[in-house]
């Protein structure tokens, strides 16, 4: 149980990073922490104690395997996370070109 709570703590650290930090790059890192906390949680759900990797090889019995489904899903979620992170880094570079700063409090031309 404590391991799941630690995942949620990690999630909250990432959320804090997204909400409180002023540097764009730090915000992107915070988002990464949030995503990985969720992914870790998802993998841990499928884990069982002394479980084996869920790979079927020749002449092997299906015994004591961990749940493979969360792992496949997490792989998909990681790919999505990659796409979002790359997109945001590209946007951050462009923002730096336009505004000359990474400080989110100085990037505020949109108001109202």
């Amino acid at each position: 149980m404590s391991i799941y709570i630690l995942c949620l703590v990690l999630f909250c650290i990432g959320l804090y990073c997204v909400l409180r930090k002023r540097n764009i790059i730090k915000i992107i890192i915070g988002l990464g922490i949030v995503e990985y906390a969720v992914n870790l949680f998802f993998v841990l759900i499928g884990y069982q104690r002394y479980g084996r990797a869920p790979i079927l090889a020749k002449e092997q019995k299906i015994l004591n395997m961990v749940d493979p489904l969360p792992q496949a899903l997490v792989l998909t979620a990681i790919v999505i996370g990659l796409a979002v992170t790359v997109f945001m880094v590209a946007i951050a570079i462009r923002l730096y070109e336009k505004y000359g700063t990474f400080d989110i409090t100085k990037i505020k031309r949109l108001k109202g």
């Binding site: 915000i27 945001m88 946007i91 951050a92 462009r94 923002l95 336009k98 505004y99 031309r109 949109l110």
Partner: peptide, 12 residues
């Protein structure tokens, strides 16, 4: 500039 800013906010 404004579009990038809006997109960043939306993405986050």
């Amino acid at each position: 500039a404004e579009e990038l800013e809006a997109s960043f906010k939306y993405t986050i």
